Amino acid sequence: MSIQEAALEGELERYLGNTIRELRRAHGLTIADISERAEISRGMLSRIENGQTATSLDALSRIARALGVSLSALFKNYQTDGEGAQLIKAGESMEVARRGSRAGHIYNLLSYHQGPTKRFEPFLITIDQDQPPYPVFEHPGTEFIYMLEGCIEYRHGKTVYELRPGDALTFDGNVPHGPEKLVEVPIRFLSVTVYPEGGHE
């Protein structure tokens, strides 16, 4: 193997590792979760995520299934041309499991494959049933909410805001926040979190 081929192989391993780790975290899954689903040891999966080892297509296929994506999705943006634009067509956003999912929240991630650290996360959030208690969130960065449908009372710290279609709310994610009352369901809103410089893992 030439030096150039070795360098390209190392680049691919790092790309795949970063992509797998990002997808796993987007789904709120641990290495142990994926290890069990893909029938791959935790140590091996950790080395794959860190770009420290090559792996077979069979193993990558099992990891992709464990993540709920196609094998081709793992390679989607490898050595792509252009200016780094990403188009997510209607109906093709990734539904991910997050802490609020158990309270009737549906999270559709509108952009992904952004490298090893996240600079921002845009979600389309749908709440179609009232299942208290509601989750309380705290995270780095600034969050922006834009209401599309329904009506919700949303708490940020000690203040509660009533949000209706067309309303926008921007706040510090480090302050505890989350739904206070579902006034009118179904509720749909766009939530975009911009993380501090350096991103968020």
Rank of each mutant, 00 (worst) to 15 (best):
K181P: 00
R47A: 01
D81K: 15
H200M: 06
T142F: 05
S61I: 09
V194D: 04
T142Y: 05
P179S: 13
R119L: 11
E143Y: 02
P196N: 12
V175I: 11
E180Y: 14
K76W: 05
T159K: 15
S191A: 01
A85R: 10
H105G: 05
L163S: 05
A32F: 03
A90D: 15
P132I: 01
F123C: 04
L8M: 13
A38M: 03
G115S: 04
A103W: 07
S111G: 02
V185W: 00
E201D: 15
H113R: 05
T142Q: 00
V69I: 13
V136K: 14
E201V: 14
E11F: 13
N108A: 12
F75Y: 06
G84N: 00
L124I: 08
G51W: 08
L182S: 00
D81E: 15
A26R: 00
M1A: 14
H27R: 13
T193W: 03
T159D: 15
V194H: 08
V194W: 04
L109N: 05
T19I: 06
A26E: 11
I48Y: 02
D128P: 09
G157S: 13
A7M: 14
A26C: 10
G166W: 08
R24S: 02
V160P: 12
E180I: 09
G43I: 04
A90C: 14
E143F: 07
V69Y: 07
E92H: 15
A26N: 12
I125M: 01
M147I: 04
H27T: 09
E143D: 03
S191M: 01
M44A: 02
V183I: 13
L124G: 07
P179G: 07
P196E: 10
